[in-house]
Write a protein that binds this DNA or RNA. Structure first.
Lengths: 213, 213
DNA sequence: TAGATTGTTAATCGATTAACAATC
DNA sequence: TAGATTGTTAATCGATTAACAATC
């Protein structure tokens, strides 16, 4: 699949939501779906749904709507979920283990290969997931196909791990440490900052007082 | 503090980033800071920094910039971090325990009060955090000042917990389940969906092939 | 066919950026 | 004072929404 121009971040972040929505509809036995239905579920406009899809192609039929199975498959492919990804996790704390144990990821092609830490006697990983010392990181990455590095360490170490991952040729970093890791030409990054999320919630909680009506 | 008009989501989500940036600068011993400095650290424009701040007041001085301590205190207040929040966590899995154990939250006034689950023999919580059966949720909320309910269950239960939390008068929900919980007049919600984050990363990883140059 | 709904073009809205007077 | 930098107004840019021809 080829598309005309780079897709804006706003659109990209809606794609997983469409995917989730379609999965739910499929589970409910729905066979076809209109942009209006999707828009109501996701609380956006039907116009936006159609605009978003049209960035990637023509998936519907006038007067009919979208075939659910077909549309879902298309979006799945757009997200790249039809491929397999090798994932390593750095940091064997609660977040790291949460990721390691979330089996549903495997349905979408994410294979958790290993969890790295400096201390790991206490770490219980699911079967098939190796537990290794961080010193073995480079060696492991060389010998295995690692596409994604999830970083769940504290921020002090997160940056150096990211550096190491980039050097090893890992092209995607999923960062949970409360610090920004920057993208470069060879590496895409998704920063997921729990602090910022909580603080945003906190702002909203107080906003009623702050904002005059 | 009172402000003129509702602040857009884009601005709100930058506020915690400013706050983090200022904390780092403070730790580095910086005493005053300009919008340009901040903009370079956060990879945005100086214009945007000043526009964002000006939504909430005038915190700087022409020709000088911003006094770091003062500005940081202002943003802290804007985020509502000068208050105390009672937090309960529903779901004693890895994510739930990650939240329960992240002590740094207490520095910003978040008091983790309890973790709820249906099975909890295995749960080790830090001292001061109660571990309770979900059946005791209502009672606990009645008897304690609970401001924020973090939901870390699987999606099947997440919705009913959210419903229950709303009924009990909890006005902020921090949701980690892969489902959208909707805001209403009395309840603000922050949905933090790990799946969507991973899928977004995945899109970006493949985007180079997808997007023609 | 008539009704429904897409894909797309045009209009609107809002957010970002640029520019600059005010002033420390 | 001269240089620096804010806060704000105006210009630009981009994203969302509306409208509608195409057509199933």
């Amino acid at each position: 699949m080829k598309i005309k121009k780079p897709i804006s971040d706003a659109v990209v972040r809606r794609m997983p939501r469409y995917y989730r929505c379609l999965k739910e509809l499929e589970r409910a036995g729905v066979k076809r779906v209109s942009s209006t239905t999707i828009s109501e579920i996701l609380n956006i406009t039907a116009s936006q749904v159609r605009q978003d899809f049209s960035n990637f192609g023509e998936f519907g039929q006038q007067g009919y709507g979208y075939d659910l199975v077909y549309l879902k498959a298309q979006i799945r492919a757009i997200l790249g979920l039809d491929k397999e990804y090798g994932v390593v996790i750095v940091g064997g704390g609660h977040i790291g283990l949460a990721l390691a144990n979330y089996e549903k990821y495997s349905r979408e092609g994410f294979r958790i290969l290993a969890v790295f830490d400096v201390k790991f006697d206490h770490i219980k990983a699911p079967r098939g997931v190796e537990i290794l010392h961080i010193d073995e990181f480079e060696k492991f990455v060389e010998e295995n196909k690692v596409d994604i590095c999830a970083i769940t360490t504290q921020k002090e170490t997160a940056l150096s791990i990211a550096e190491k991952a980039k050097e090893c040729g890992i092209s995607a970093i999923w960062n949970f440490a409360p610090i920004d890791i920057h993208e470069d030409d060879n590496t895409v990054v998704e920063n997921l900052n729990l602090n910022e999320s909580l603080f945003t919630l906190c702002y909203k909680l107080n906003a009623k007082e702050l904002e005059e009506v």
